Simulated scan of single mutants.
Amino acid sequence: METISAIEEYQAKIGQEQSFLLFVKTANCSVCEGLRPQIEAFETDYKLPFHLVNAAEVPELAGQLMLFTAPVVLLFRQGQEIHRFARFVPIEELRRRLDELEGSLNA
């Protein structure tokens, strides 16, 4: 996962990448640390890029995306958020949504 460390980097991703996954975590979040390896394991299965941001380090991004908890997994297509999974992420549902998103890229 590529780390985003400034809101400008996020805005560039929105403008440049057709689709991507954004994993948002915070410092000292045990749920975030438990979920992260599961999300990273999906990276090799999909062509779309995966990005990581620490909301504590980029608080303006958390504000812009209206994030009130962590972890959050966001899926984007053509600059728009299409799915949001917050706090407890159902892994099979996430995989299904990633499959749909990947399928739309290939269509």
Rank of each mutant, 00 (worst) to 15 (best):
M1D: 13
M1E: 05
M1Y: 07
T3I: 08
I4A: 13
S5C: 08
S5M: 14
I7F: 13
I7E: 06
I7L: 13
I7C: 02
E8L: 05
E8C: 02
E8W: 04
E8Y: 09
E9H: 15
E9I: 14
E9C: 08
Y10F: 15
Q11F: 00
Q11L: 07
A12Q: 14
K13L: 15
Q16M: 06
Q16D: 15
E17F: 07
E17G: 09
S19T: 02
S19W: 01
F20R: 02
F20M: 02
F20N: 04
L21R: 00
F23P: 01
F23H: 10
F23I: 06
F23Q: 05
V24W: 12
V24D: 05
V24S: 09
V24A: 12
T26I: 13
A27E: 15
N28A: 11
N28Y: 12
C29S: 12
S30G: 10
S30M: 12
V31F: 03
L35T: 09
R36Y: 06
P37M: 12
P37Q: 02
Q38W: 04
Q38A: 11
Q38M: 06
I39P: 04
E40I: 10
E40F: 06
F42P: 03
F42I: 07
F42E: 07
F42G: 04
T44S: 15
T44Y: 11
T44D: 13
D45S: 15
K47L: 12
K47V: 13
K47S: 15
F50G: 06
H51N: 06
L52Q: 14
V53Q: 09
V53F: 10
N54D: 11
A55Y: 05
A56W: 10
A56F: 13
A56D: 15
V58Y: 14
V58L: 05
P59N: 08
P59S: 12
E60V: 09
L61F: 06
A62G: 09
Q64E: 15
L65D: 04
M66I: 11
M66G: 07
M66Q: 14
L67A: 07
F68Q: 05
T69V: 10
A70S: 14
P71N: 06
V73Y: 03
V73T: 08
L75E: 01
L75Q: 00
L75P: 01
F76K: 00
R77C: 03
R77T: 12
R77P: 03
Q78D: 14
Q78P: 11
G79L: 02
Q80S: 07
Q80E: 15
Q80W: 00
I82Q: 01
H83G: 00
H83R: 11
R84M: 01
A86Q: 13
R87M: 06
F88Y: 14
F88W: 12
F88S: 10
V89R: 04
V89Q: 01
V89I: 14
P90A: 01
I91W: 11
E93R: 05
L94R: 01
L94V: 00
L94K: 00
R96A: 15
R96T: 14
R97F: 05
R97H: 08
R97P: 04
R97I: 00
L98F: 00
L98N: 01
L98T: 00
E100D: 02
E100C: 03
L101Q: 03
L101F: 05
G103W: 08
G103A: 10
L105M: 10
L105F: 07
L105T: 00
N106C: 11
N106D: 08
A107F: 12
A107N: 09
